[in-house]
Amino acid sequence: MAVADKLDAREFFFGHKACAGCGGSLAVRIALKVLGERAVATLPAGCMSAVGFNFPQLAFTNNAFISPFAATASVMTGLEAGLRRRGETDYHIVGFAGDGGTADIGLQALSGAIDRNDNIIYICYDNEAYMNTGIQKSGLTPLGARTTTTPGGSRSRKKDMSAIIDAHGIPYAATASVGYIDDYIRKVEKAASIKGTKYIHVLAPCPTGWGIATDETVEIAREAVDVGVWELKEYENGIWTTNIEPKNPDRVEEYYARQGRFRNTGRKTQNG
């Protein structure tokens, strides 16, 4: 079956005001096309809620809610319990939080949800900074990247969310990239088939924040995987499996060089 045939032909995130070439909006769009009309989306403060919910321009065609910034996972827990109590079946509770909403302010609530093993799909769209507020450093900003609060390049390494998540003993976790859309689609599908908490961390470049052209989003997301900066892997039964081996690990410098955020900072990157 062609990968596109796995998707609902309808668009569920459409007419939004994301910047042209936004990787985050692609991650949200595709996940909803996998999950279909019975997905209930929760989005905290962040790019995707800011661009999707400007009354009366409402860009989600399924049920969707903006949660408090720190509370994506907690709202999802309540939604899941409430719908189950109403006797609903065959629905998906999906969350889309950015890197800051996940690894920083929303980490505690996410930890609580995984601890309870609530039946939810949590998707972190990682654009590696607080892009909605104008490109400030988050816990997932990589070493050396310039943001508006790290004008000389970030001095700290990107948090290892995979390790944090797997330490909870989650039923399913995966990393993904909007540059490898087939792999991402397969992972969202798989998450939808597993009971308990699922976590997918998808690298979603931001042309505005990364200093790339709007047509380079997908390319750079693919290159991150190919040079080995972003590993595609999934976690099941306590074991991580690598899905796609880096093709060009020797070209990592090119990956950094083509992004404005790493240029002329004079600071080293995570890879040297």
Partner: peptide, 18 residues
């Protein structure tokens, strides 16, 4: 895991209609 989540979770459940 916190009061912030207690009320957020209650909001989610209320949004589900219970």
């Amino acid at each position: 895991e916190s009061e912030h989540s207690a009320l957020s979770c209650a909001m989610g459940a209320s949004l589900a209609g219970v």
